[in-house]
Simulated assay, not measured.
Amino acid sequence: MMEDFNSETDSDYTSYWRDWFVSSRGNEYFCEIDEDYLTDRFNLTGLNTEVPYYQYALDLVTDVFDLDADDDLREQIEKSARHLYGLVHARYIVTTRGLAKMLDKYKKCDFGKCPRVVCEGHPLLPMGQFDLPNMSTVKLYCPKCEDIYNPKSSRHASIDGAYFGTSFHSILFQVYPALNPEKSMRRYEPKIYGFKVHAAAALARWQDGWREDLHWRLAEFDMTHKFIEESESEEDGFDYAEEPEGAKVDKVVAETASGRMDLGK
């Protein structure tokens, strides 16, 4: 909001809008976009249909805003300017200069560290699950365990994921392959008094979980199925001793073919 800037005049506000935006609390994930990138119309292709008050918002972001508007209109323009900056930001961070700026923030752990113990505090990267706005909030990607996490701060958790896009983190490691961490095969091993839990017991729990999941998935399609152990009577269960109808037909065809071969001899 404008009041967070603590400026006394409109000229002060427009002169330092980008600096104010990037340095504001909750916007630590953003890097500052170069002015020459913002003034190049090619980089803004298609955004005029997605951002309300597009021209006013662009003037505000590029520090040429001089409209004498009331508070309500100014608030709408400010909201559009933040949205415009976020959409342009998603395009900028996949450029050479944008990748370099985000790389510096990544090395400083500005995006946080992985909460997974085995990753040993590896730095995270912001990413979006969708390239379209208003679909999902920003997530944090760990290149070591290759999993995504929610930001700890509520300010960061409210940022639109489209402001970072779905490709940024992958492009970063394509350009800087040396930074891609080696994947670890270590995992937590449950133990009882220092002894590992029997592998068969773990496998049984995994199978029970999948079986329960299968029940729920079938129930969503109004389909019922009972395993042999769950049948109330022997008639309800599947008789494995009885050959399926298809198997009987295949057997008859095979025997007929065998008889013909004997006749040929």
Score class of each variant (00 low, 15 high):
3 E>F: 12
6 N>T: 00
7 S>A: 01
8 E>D: 07
9 T>E: 03
9 T>F: 01
12 D>G: 01
12 D>V: 00
14 T>S: 11
20 W>V: 04
20 W>Y: 09
21 F>V: 09
22 V>L: 02
24 S>T: 05
25 R>M: 09
25 R>C: 06
25 R>Q: 11
32 E>R: 11
34 D>G: 12
36 D>H: 13
38 L>M: 14
39 T>I: 09
42 F>H: 10
42 F>R: 14
42 F>Q: 12
43 N>I: 07
43 N>S: 09
45 T>H: 03
53 Y>M: 13
53 Y>A: 15
53 Y>C: 15
54 Y>W: 12
55 Q>E: 13
55 Q>Y: 10
57 A>G: 10
59 D>P: 06
61 V>G: 05
61 V>R: 01
63 D>W: 00
64 V>E: 06
66 D>Q: 13
66 D>T: 11
66 D>M: 03
66 D>E: 13
69 A>F: 13
73 L>S: 02
73 L>M: 05
74 R>V: 00
78 E>Q: 05
80 S>L: 07
81 A>G: 04
82 R>M: 03
83 H>F: 08
85 Y>T: 04
88 V>C: 13
88 V>P: 01
96 T>C: 07
99 L>D: 02
104 D>W: 02
105 K>Y: 00
110 D>V: 00
115 P>G: 02
119 C>R: 03
122 H>S: 08
123 P>H: 02
128 G>C: 03
129 Q>L: 10
130 F>W: 15
131 D>W: 01
133 P>I: 03
135 M>A: 07
136 S>D: 10
141 Y>G: 02
143 P>I: 07
146 E>H: 10
153 S>P: 01
161 G>H: 05
163 Y>A: 05
163 Y>F: 15
165 G>C: 13
167 S>W: 05
172 L>M: 08
172 L>V: 05
174 Q>N: 10
174 Q>G: 07
174 Q>I: 12
175 V>Y: 11
175 V>L: 06
177 P>Q: 09
179 L>K: 07
181 P>L: 04
182 E>T: 13
184 S>L: 14
185 M>Q: 13
187 R>G: 14
187 R>Y: 12
190 P>N: 08
190 P>T: 08
192 I>W: 00
192 I>P: 00
194 G>N: 07
194 G>C: 08
196 K>R: 08
196 K>Y: 07
199 A>S: 14
199 A>Y: 10
200 A>D: 15
200 A>V: 11
201 A>N: 11
204 A>P: 02
204 A>Y: 13
205 R>W: 15
206 W>C: 15
207 Q>G: 09
209 G>A: 04
210 W>V: 15
211 R>F: 08
212 E>F: 14
214 L>D: 12
217 R>M: 10
220 E>I: 04
223 M>W: 01
224 T>E: 15
227 F>P: 02
227 F>T: 12
228 I>S: 15
230 E>Q: 14
231 S>T: 12
232 E>D: 12
234 E>W: 15
235 E>C: 11
236 D>P: 06
241 A>P: 04
242 E>P: 00
245 E>R: 10
245 E>I: 14
247 A>G: 11
247 A>C: 12
253 V>M: 11
254 A>W: 02
255 E>M: 08
257 A>S: 10
258 S>E: 13
258 S>R: 12
264 G>P: 00
264 G>K: 14
265 K>P: 06
